[in-house]
């Protein structure tokens, strides 16, 4: 059962994700952001559920469509946006970009631009968590990896799922099923669209949940994370959503069936949640309005900060190819 404060947190996070995603797309379309940005519209409920279900110490491996995951995991919005702009104040110092956000200060270990490749990496983090064992409070560490439905077709998914089940690793495989693999609908690329059913065949717990329902999703994620932290093995969660935009920030999506998209927009997480809160009376209209106003100001502030952040200095070009001290002279780089 979620508390009022948790419900407010979820609403704030969802509204923040929607507003930030929309703003980034607008900047891309205006030409003021030269960046491959992948919108997260439709995933807000899943991300908000993840935000309330995670605990300090848990670790995340995300993908290129990671804005919502990054905010759910507690990354600083200003520094995330500065990274999307490739500026010096970015979470990766400007060298990662929107497809490669990392923020180890909050346990956001990596994200990959290669579909499905984060899954084996999360398995390795899961082995590390299992070997480390519980912390001094007796709690284990869970590893979460997020990915879209499209990632379930590649070999890395199969290899990682098998290893996690084999070694009973503390990993939550969170499939953010938006029903599109780039520009191809799931029914055109998968023999069976029952991804949770496929996951169960590896020998792990698999659950399907309505990803447009953040409260139901939070319950499922909490249970899965608790299972991981208490050495109960991995879980696959298939959170059913729908992509409410094109594949990328500027992509055409006129090919998406209009009635399908319209039906999904009826369930757009932020307005749906707002209606539900007003109906149930769990959050007052004044509080919802106040959250929205504060979110709008936060997003403006973050984009202003990012746009003012300095360009990355030229002398950093060859830094972090290797750790400091390794000579690059033989490879043509003279200090």
């Amino acid at each position: 059962m979620l508390t009022t404060s948790e419900l407010q947190d979820m609403y704030r996070l969802m509204a923040l994700i929607t507003a930030t995603s929309n703003r980034a797309c607008a900047e891309v379309k205006a030409g003021s952001l030269q960046s491959a940005f992948y919108p997260v519209r439709g995933l807000e409920g899943v991300c908000a559920a993840l935000g309330v279900a995670k605990q300090p110490g848990d670790q995340l491996v995300s993908t290129y469509r990671s804005l919502g995951d990054a905010l759910a995991w507690g990354s600083d919005l200003r520094r995330v946006i500065a990274e999307i702009y490739g500026r010096a104040d970015g979470v990766c110092g400007g060298k990662g970009g929107p497809m490669h956000l990392h923020d180890t200060s909050v346990g956001y270990m990596t994200s990959t631009g290669i579909v499905g490749s984060g899954i084996p990496i999360a398995v390795g983090l899961g082995i590390a968590a299992q070997l480390d064992g519980p912390n001094s409070n007796g709690t284990g560490r869970a590893v979460v990896t997020t990915f879209g439905d499209g990632a379930t077709s590649i070999g890395a998914f199969h290899e990682g799922m098998n290893m996690a089940a084999l070694w009973k690793l503390p990993v939550l495989f969170l499939c953010q099923n938006n029903q599109w693999g780039e520009h191809t609908p799931i029914a055109e690329y998968a023999g069976s669209t029952d991804l949770a059913g496929r996951a169960a065949s590896y020998g792990m717990t698999a659950v399907k949940v309505d990803g447009f329902d953040p409260v139901a999703t939070a319950d499922v994620l909490r249970e899965a994370l608790e299972r991981a932290r208490s050495d109960g093995g991995p879980t696959f969660v298939e959170a059913m959503t729908y992509r409410l935009t094109g594949h990328s920030g500027s992509a055409d999506y006129s090919y998406m069936p209009a009635e399908e998209l319209a039906a999904a927009l009826e369930r757009d997480p932020v307005p749906s949640f707002r209606r539900a809160m007003l109906t149930s009376g769990q959050i007052s209209e004044a509080d919802l309005d106040s959250i929205e106003a504060s979110v709008a100001a936060t997003v403006d502030d973050a984009f202003t900060f990012a746009q003012a952040s300095p360009e990355v200095e030229g002398h950093l070009r060859y830094r972090d190819v290797f750790a400091e001290g390794a000579s690059l002279a033989g490879m043509g780089v003279r200090a």
């Binding site: 390795g124 290899e159 290893m163």
Partner: peptide
């Protein structure tokens, strides 16, 4: 066998897991 771990025949899984172990503080 926790430290010397025989794996499935899955090279992408092996190297991916090793990358994850390295991120998790180990020296695989």
């Amino acid at each position: 066998r926790d430290r010397v771990r025989p794996t499935p025949i899955a090279e992408s899984g092996i190297i991916g897991a090793a990358v994850g172990l390295a991120l998790g503080g180990y020296k695989p």
